[in-house]
Amino acid sequence: MSGARLDLEGIGKSFRGLRAVHDVSFTVPAGAVHALIGPNGAGKTTIFNMIAGVFAPDAGAVRLDGETISGLRPDRICDAGVGRTFQLVKPFRGLSVLENVTVGALHRHRHLGQARDSAAAILSRLGLHDRRHQLAESLTLPDRKRLEVARALATEPKLLLLDEVMAGLRPTEVDVMVQFLRELNQRTGLTILLIEHVMRAVMALAAEIVVVSYGEKIAQGTPHEVTRHQAVLDVYLGEQEMA
């Protein structure tokens, strides 16, 4: 498993004439961890959905290692090597934790036994092993967030899209997740793009931050640069002090 480069080339999307995302371009180099931040409604999840194939961009293209993936179905984009989590978690509620992750692992392992072993290994690393026989619907929200990550990782992606996986976690739990993702990135070279409001996690993980507001990219740079960028301070940080 190694990382892939992600290129967004001027992607845009409108819903019934309402411009959700307009002409957004940025690159996440292979093996890098970048963050996508912006106020609520800025279009972050819409950008994720275009990368993951939930809908195709109206304009522009999404490339993974140079191959155009925009316009493909979500399962094809998963084939291409993109794993994603959902902001509003979507566990397979009636299945056990282990089987949730096994479904992801079946993407790379044809046989149920192998897939289950691979799923169990991922669950151990995320600290969910003890709960593997519980039904997913019985998990607490932080555990459901972890399950989202585990299920996406089980597909062995080259690019991992994390949509607010830290939301609702306690500070110590955030640190554990940050540590896990950092190790994962260092060990496997997996490229990670995260949408996150928990700035503590963004600062700890992201080499670069892309800031969007009203569907447009307004800044990009290292955390140090972005926190001093006037446009960012105006639209986003006016309300709260950045860590």
Binding site: P74, C78, R84, K90, F92, R93, R151, A152
Partner: peptide, 25 residues
């Protein structure tokens, strides 16, 4: 007890999440 069977259960539970992990729904 097959891959197809597990894919069905995943679709039954949440088709969008199933497709995101590569299930050809």
């Amino acid at each position: 007890e097959s891959r197809l069977g597990r894919y069905w259960l995943a679709i039954r539970e949440d088709a969008e999440a199933a497709q995101a992990v590569g299930v050809p729904v």
